[in-house]
Structures are given as structure tokens and as C-alpha cells.
């Protein structure tokens, strides 16, 4: 995604959930990247999933479908 595009991140309860969500997102064709969790957002889990803010609805649907309960979704 272009560096100037608005982004959001999903934060998780476990690193396993973060990796599972990333795998599901890639399979669904979403452009995502696992990043170290921004310290000001959460300390729940060391990995967060960054994605384009415009994809938020798709991301929420995808998490539901994958059975992954996020700890939160935040705009960067």
C-alpha cells in the first residue's frame, strides 16, 4: 500500500491469533503486514496486523469468518 494511504491496525490477545488473521487476510487478497504492536495502542500481544483503512469492513468480516476475536481495531 502507498506510504501516504491511511492505515489501521488490528491488535490481538495472542500472537497465534495475529498470525492466523494475517494468513486469512492474505488468502482473501487483502494487503496486510504484521508489525510490532504500536506501544501507545496495546501491550496485549507483540504482533499487530496493519491494513489499509478503506478495508476496515472487509477486515472485520474476515476476522469473524476466521473465528479470530480481535482485542481492538485502531486507526493509525
Amino acid at each position: 500500500m502507498p506510504a501516504t494511504e491511511a492505515r489501521s491496525v488490528v491488535v490481538f490477545h495472542t500472537t497465534s491469533a495475529a498470525i492466523k488473521a494475517d494468513k486469512a487476510a492474505r488468502q482473501a487478497g487483502l494487503e496486510t503486514r504484521l508489525v510490532p504492536t504500536p506501544r501507545h495502542l496495546s501491550s496485549d500481544c507483540g504482533l499487530a496486523l496493519r491494513f489499509a483503512r478503506v478495508d476496515r469492513a472487509k477486515m472485520e468480516a474476515l476476522l469473524r469468518e476466521a473465528g479470530v476475536e480481535p482485542a481492538g481495531i485502531h486507526d493509525l
Binding site: T15, S16, A18, I19, K20, D22, K23, L34, V35, P36, T37, G46, L47
Partner: peptide
């Protein structure tokens, strides 16, 4: 180290563990 750090080697290792699961 699987899933412990945010860098690509850690993520690749975490994915290997997830896929075994």
C-alpha cells in the same frame, strides 16, 4: 522465535507453528 518479535523471521517461524496446529 515463533511470533515473539515483529520481524519477518519471527513471523515466518510463527506461521510454521500455526500451520502445524
Amino acid at each position: 522465535n515463533p511470533g515473539r518479535s515483529g520481524h519477518r523471521l519471527s513471523i515466518a517461524a510463527g506461521l510454521a507453528v500455526l500451520e502445524a496446529r
